[in-house]
Amino acid sequence: MTQSGEPVIRVNDLKKHYGDVKAVDGVTFEVARGEVFGMLGPNGAGKTTTIEVLEGLRSPDSGTVEVFGLDVCKHPGSIKQRIGVQLQSVSLYPRLTVTELIDLFGSFFDHHVPTKQLIDAVDLGERAKAYSMNLSGGQQQRLSIALALVNDPDLVFLDEPTTGLDPQARRSLWDLVKGLQEKGKSVMLTTHYMEEAAELCDRVAIMDHGRILEMGTVPELIGRRFKERAVFFDTSPKLPSEKLAQLGGVTRASQEDGQTLLYSKDVPATIGALLAMADELDFQPHNLGIRQATLEDVFLDLTGRALRD
């Protein structure tokens, strides 16, 4: 990833209230050119409000919001020419075909990509003449992405692009986003899927209750809170937990659903001690493995609750 020049997005202390509800409560961040930036958080965290302010759909109560170095309140027209927008759960004119919709949206911009090329890019060639209401969820989402790319934008906003899609459709959308990045586009997306943020984003901001709690690359976010790695194996029956906690390098231990989890500062020492204990107590640690902590662990640690609830 190469980052150079002015950031494409610069937000400073953005606030937006709906009545008494502080939807966005002082958010500050930048997105560099060519970067894929993710906002991760549960529903109601303020992700969508933030992204809609950037798209020029809502005006901020206070704070400065710049896209391409332009104030979004003062230059909405010229910003809209250069951004691509995919909104959360929008359906389109139900009785227009894929081709007609792309043509129509293209006509709103000064410059637009040839329709055929876009249809091929999102792999909708076989449904080009289908009414949008007859498309599957994944196809509608791909059409929605095609419409976001109709003006060959420099910056693309994707608001929960894979919510409600099956795993296969999600994979194919991820490939699309990766393709955008390879073409040097900047992307800002929101999601409440950790694996999506980890897979796609150069940097992630974790948002809750209108604030950014933590921001950085995924390894940074995990590294900041979790120095340990997790050693896991299947056990039945349960092992004495006080003995597990005393094993070399272990800081915390848990046993759930037939799996034992040991957070360890010193994995070789932990595994050595574990195998000695297995000999002594005569059990087999099946499917023994080691993994990093995940964004889910980070979110749990930050907010005290799981991401999807």
Binding site: G56, L57, G77, I83, V90, L92, F108, F109
Partner: peptide, 9 residues
């Protein structure tokens, strides 16, 4: 749909 149009020029 109206909102989506609002995000275009």
């Amino acid at each position: 749909i109206l909102k989506r149009m609002g995000a275009t020029p």
